[in-house]
């Protein structure tokens, strides 16, 4: 079963990271899911692939009533992001799925009805979770052409999807980045190959550098916190991406 870790709590406003599945078959990429709760409502960020649904569902259930999930947020259209959608909907048919307008007719191939999808316009939008304002921040072409991150300005947490992702060796399964220089080696190849646009990267770095962020939470690998957040942003700013091979 996956582990749950409460990474932020202020009353009933919580961020729960669902990470590391020891039983996950090796051919599936490891993913992090994040649950944000506020006032009894919950939103699950990048709910994950269908194959890992049992592990994510059971971990989430240990922290939160899954039938009280009001929404999922899909940073983009990849199968590791949201191919579990139909299964989540079994527990909560009225649940909404926030996703870029670009993918709003593609993601329904994973499940849902016309009513399920809330389209995010290119410039982003505010998403309310029982009074808590969350901000869908544009991150297009990083790597998906219709891509969003989610910022919680109260908790000062940015969920950054595939940005910041690291494919870590099995023995490095810490929740947080402890040694930036050692960690970033596992992120470099991924960012060079998966991220498509230096121009888009530049804009993203400028935008998030202005934001007040205590934790940057990627969908794969460890969480950046404190000074490592800005260390990551400037590392990413310097990296040349969209490159195949060395």
């Amino acid at each position: 079963m996956k582990k749950t870790n409460v990474i932020y709590q202020d009353g009933d406003h919580k961020w729960v990271a669902i990470v590391r599945d020891p039983e996950r078959p090796g051919h599936l990429v490891d993913t992090n899911e994040y649950l944000v709760t506020h006032g009894g409502a919950g939103i699950l960020l990048d709910p994950g692939g269908a194959e890992v649904f049992p592990a994510v569902f059971s971990a989430l259930s240990s922290e939160f009533d899954p039938t009280a999930l009001s929404a999922v947020f899909a940073s983009h259209q990849d199968p590791d992001i949201c191919s579990s959608l139909a299964l989540w909907l079994e527990f909560n048919p009225g649940m909404r799925c926030y996703v870029s307008w670009l993918w709003s007719s593609f993601v329904p191939h994973f499940g849902g009805t016309a009513e399920t999808f809330a389209c995010i316009p290119d410039e982003g939008m505010e998403i309310s979770l029982n009074g808590l304002q969350l901000q869908a921040v544009p991150a297009h072409y990083l790597h998906s052409s219709g891509n969003f991150h989610l910022y919680d300005r109260q908790a000062k947490i940015l969920f950054s999807g595939d940005v910041g992702a690291a494919l870590l060796p099995a023995d490095q399964d810490g929740l947080f980045v402890e040694n930036f220089d050692a960690h970033i080696k596992h992120a470099e190849g991924f960012h060079r190959r998966w991220m498509g646009s230096n121009e888009a990267k530049r804009r993203w770095c400028e935008r998030v550098a202005q934001m007040d962020i205590d934790m940057l939470c990627p969908q794969h690998g460890a969480i950046y916190r404190g000074a490592d957040v800005h260390r990551f942003i400037s590392w990413f700013d310097d990296l040349q991406v969209g490159i195949v091979g060395s």
Partner: peptide
């Protein structure tokens, strides 16, 4: 078959009280 197997695994792992009814509906 695939969908139900994943649902059943989830319900078994979590012992979620709502699970049985949802499985039955499925």
């Amino acid at each position: 078959i695939r969908h139900t197997k994943l649902l059943r695994d989830a319900v078994d792992l979590s012992a979620n009280p709502a699970g049985q009814a949802i499985l039955q509906r499925r």
